[in-house]
Every structure is written in structure tokens, then in C-alpha cells.
């Protein structure tokens, strides 16, 4: 079963534990500048929204890469950058419609979410359940349950 990161912005408090978990997992340090997930703060709407790669099936970054440095991880479905192959041309950063693949000047390569090999650190670190890692075919399950709960609420007692 393929799993997918699922984000519920309504639960996000903007604490950035996900960004720290991401940078620790990938770089062994706490560094927001190196996180592959970003939390956006829409100040005047009072909303915080975590945002990262959605792992497109037909991934534009992968299609655009001239050296085939981006490959599909068969186990997770993640589109993974091979640093050894990447030449830092940044064409993928132009191709991605969502901005979720980015250049790292320190390494001269690009980076993107790789789902941590199937155990995403951001989801594990989120204290409010705003980021979860769930069945990719059923990311809507929680919402469905919430709406389902509101239907047919007449009492069964005495029926």
C-alpha cells in the first residue's frame, strides 16, 4: 500500500517542529533553512499552512531533469534526488509548479522531500496531527468520517 503525507492546516499551530525534524533527519542539525517542508504563516488570516512535495505521479521535476537524477523510490513512490547525479542545473526548480524542489547552495544540488524512506520525520514530530502519513488512496478518509458523523443523526433509541 502506498502512503502519502497528508496535511490539515487547521490543526497547524506554526511551531516548526516539522522543519526541525526534517533538517535533523537529512542534515543532522536543526536548521529551518535546510528543511524540505515549510510552514507558511498567513498573518492577517490567522492561518498557518505546512507545505511540501506532493510526490506527483507524473512528476514534472523528474521529466525536466536532463541527467535523470530524479528517480522513483519503488517502495514509497517518492521522487528522490540522487545527489551523485544531480548537476545543480535547477531546471527542475523551474518545472515544478509548486516550488517544492529547491537548490541548496552549500551542496550545489537540489533537494526535495523523499518521504524519509517511508517514515517521514515531519509527521512523527508534529504535535497536533496536522501532518500525518496515511494510505495514499484514502487521504480524504478523516474528512469523510467527519461529514459522515454529521449525517443521519436521529436517535436510534426505541427504533
Amino acid at each position: 500500500m502506498e502512503k502519502s503525507l497528508h496535511i490539515d492546516p487547521n490543526k497547524c499551530t506554526g511551531c516548526l517542529q516539522c522543519e526541525m525534524a526534517c533538517s535533523y533527519e537529512n542534515y543532522g542539525q536543526f536548521n529551518l533553512a535546510k528543511s524540505r517542508i515549510k510552514v507558511f504563516n498567513f498573518e492577517h488570516a490567522g492561518r498557518k499552512v505546512p507545505y511540501t512535495c506532493t510526490q506527483c505521479s507524473d512528476a514534472w521535476c523528474m521529466a525536466a531533469c536532463p541527467v535523470e537524477a530524479i528517480k522513483v523510490d519503488a517502495a514509497t513512490g517518492a521522487k528522490v534526488v540522487s545527489e551523485a547525479t544531480c548537476v545543480g542545473c535547477k531546471v527542475c526548480t523551474i518545472a515544478c509548479p509548486f516550488g517544492t524542489i529547491n537548490y541548496v547552495h552549500e551542496t550545489g544540488k537540489v533537494q526535495k522531500c523523499d518521504l524519509c524512506g517511508g517514515d517521514p520525520a515531519c509527521a512523527a514530530a508534529c504535535p497536533t496531527g496536522a501532518i500525518t502519513y496515511v494510505d495514499a488512496d484514502w487521504t480524504g478518509l478523516d474528512k469523510m468520517r467527519q461529514w459522515a458523523e454529521k449525517t443521519d443523526t436521529q436517535s436510534r433509541v426505541g427504533a
Binding site: 499551530t13 506554526g14 511551531c15 516548526l16 517542529q17 526541525m20 490567522g46 492561518r47 498557518k48 504535535p127 497536533t128
Partner: peptide
């Protein structure tokens, strides 16, 4: 809404 400071799991 409620909001957290950096790293805060209380919010």
C-alpha cells in the same frame, strides 16, 4: 486560532 512560538508544543 491558537498559535505557537518557535518549537512550542503547547501553543
Amino acid at each position: 486560532a491558537n498559535a505557537a512560538c518557535f518549537g512550542c508544543t503547547i501553543a
